[in-house]
Computed example of a mutant assay.
Amino acid sequence: MGKTQILWGIAPIGWRNDDIPEIGAGNTLQHLLSDIVVAGFQGTEVGGFFPEPAILNKELELRNLRIAGKWFSSYIIRDGIEEAAKEFAAHCQYLKDVHADVAVVSEQTYSVQGLDKNVFKEKPYFNDEEWQRLFAGLNHLGEIAGRYGLKLVYHHHLGTGVQTEEEVDRLMAGTDPALVHLLYDTGHAYISDGNYMNILEKHMDRIGHVHFKDARLKIMEKCKQEGKSFQQAFLQGMFTVPGDGCIDFREVYKMLLKHGYSGWIVVEAEQDPDVANPLEYALIARKYIDRHLLNVPATN
Rank of each mutant, 00 (worst) to 15 (best):
E59N: 12
K121W: 13
L62T: 08
R147I: 02
V38T: 15
G142M: 07
L158Y: 04
G114H: 07
H140R: 07
R66A: 11
E143C: 05
A39H: 00
S106K: 01
I55G: 07
A68D: 14
D35W: 12
G69M: 08
V37H: 07
H156Y: 05
Q42E: 15
E59W: 09
V119K: 00
K86N: 00
V102R: 07
V153N: 01
G137D: 09
Y110T: 09
N57G: 13
F49W: 13
T44P: 03
K58V: 11
E83L: 13
H91N: 04
N139T: 06
F135K: 12
A68P: 08
Q113V: 11
V105F: 14
E45V: 14
A145D: 09
P53C: 00
A39M: 00
L62S: 14
D35L: 12
W71S: 09
L141C: 10
A90I: 10
D116C: 05
L33W: 06
Y148W: 14
G43H: 03
T164M: 07
Q132R: 15
S34D: 08
V162L: 15
I144K: 04
F49M: 08
E130F: 03
R133G: 07
H157Y: 09
V153Y: 00
V37E: 08
N127H: 12
A100R: 14
Y154H: 10
C92Y: 02
I144C: 06
N57I: 09
F49Q: 08
D116N: 12
L60N: 13
V104Y: 03
I81Y: 00
F135H: 11
E129N: 09
A103C: 10
Y148C: 12
K151C: 02
L65P: 03
K121P: 05
H99I: 05
E52A: 13
V119D: 00
D128P: 04
F126E: 13
W71G: 05
K117G: 01
Y110K: 15
T164F: 10
D116V: 08
S34K: 07
D128L: 09
L138R: 04
E83N: 11
I67Y: 09
V46M: 06
D101E: 13
T164W: 08
L60E: 12
G137T: 07
I55W: 12
E122D: 15
A39V: 02
E122W: 07
I81A: 00
E122T: 11
V102A: 06
L56Q: 05
R133M: 14
A54T: 11
A39G: 00
Q113M: 11
Y75C: 04
G69Q: 08
E61C: 09
E52R: 11
D35C: 13
E107M: 03
Q132C: 04
L134N: 10
F126W: 15
G142T: 06
R78V: 00
F50C: 10
D128M: 05
G69S: 09
V37F: 06
V162W: 12
E87S: 14
R147F: 02
S73R: 08
I81S: 01
T109K: 07
R63F: 06
A85N: 07
R133S: 10
R78I: 01
